Simulated assay, not measured.
Amino acid sequence: MAGNVVTRYENVVKSYGALTVVKGLNLEVRRGEFLSLLGPSGSGKTTTLMMLAGLETPTSGRILLDGVSIEGIPPHRRNIGVVFQNYALFPHMTVAENLAYPLKARRMARPEIGSRVQRALEIVKLESLAERRPAQLSGGQQQRVALARALVFEPSVVLLDEPLGALDRQLRETMQLELKQLHSETSVTMIYVTHDQGEAMTMSDRVAVFHDGNLLQCAPPKQLYDEPESAFVAEFVGENNRLSGTLVSRDGEQGSIKTDAGMMVASRLSSKVRIGDQVLLYVRPERASIGVAAGTCENRFEARVVDTIFQGDHTRLRLDFPASSHFTVKQNFFADTGPPAVGDRVRLGWSAQALQVVQA
Results as ranks from 00 to 15, higher is better:
357 V>E: 08
208 A>P: 10
31 R>H: 01
67 G>Y: 06
245 G>A: 02
152 V>E: 05
169 R>D: 10
29 V>T: 12
179 L>F: 09
313 D>H: 12
296 T>D: 02
83 V>T: 02
233 V>Y: 00
167 L>W: 02
79 N>H: 09
116 R>H: 11
213 G>R: 05
210 F>W: 00
108 M>R: 10
8 R>L: 09
113 I>Q: 11
128 S>F: 12
136 Q>T: 06
137 L>S: 08
142 Q>H: 05
306 V>W: 08
147 L>Y: 14
293 A>H: 12
93 M>V: 05
139 G>V: 02
306 V>M: 12
189 T>P: 15
165 G>V: 12
190 M>N: 00
308 T>Q: 00
62 R>L: 03
326 H>V: 02
68 V>M: 11
274 R>Q: 15
163 P>I: 05
125 K>L: 13
168 D>T: 06
218 C>H: 08
301 F>A: 07
94 T>A: 09
187 S>E: 12
75 P>R: 02
308 T>N: 01
66 D>G: 13
153 F>P: 06
32 G>A: 09
137 L>I: 07
304 R>E: 15
97 E>S: 07
261 A>G: 08
67 G>C: 03
27 L>I: 10
23 K>W: 12
226 D>M: 07
348 L>S: 09
312 G>S: 10
171 L>R: 12
237 V>A: 06
81 G>D: 03
181 Q>V: 03
130 A>T: 08
60 S>G: 04
336 D>C: 03
36 S>K: 06
281 L>Y: 10
305 V>W: 13
258 K>Y: 05
307 D>P: 07
122 E>K: 14
162 E>F: 13
313 D>S: 13
90 F>H: 14
165 G>C: 10
89 L>D: 04
12 V>R: 09
2 A>I: 06
178 E>M: 07
285 P>L: 03
163 P>H: 14
138 S>K: 08
344 D>L: 03
127 E>I: 02
296 T>G: 02
183 H>I: 04
286 E>M: 05
230 S>Y: 09
156 S>W: 07
349 G>H: 09
76 H>Q: 14
316 R>C: 11
140 G>W: 09
284 R>V: 04
11 N>G: 01
173 E>Y: 13
191 I>F: 01
241 N>F: 14
120 A>L: 12
55 L>Y: 15
10 E>Y: 07
129 L>M: 11
64 L>K: 10
223 Q>T: 10
27 L>Y: 13
289 S>M: 11
255 G>F: 15
319 L>Y: 13
353 Q>Y: 05
28 E>M: 09
210 F>C: 02
16 Y>G: 03
215 L>P: 01
330 K>G: 02
29 V>H: 10
66 D>K: 14
354 A>G: 01
308 T>R: 10
42 G>I: 08
269 L>H: 06
258 K>D: 01
103 L>T: 01
25 L>A: 04
258 K>S: 02
157 V>F: 09
94 T>Y: 15
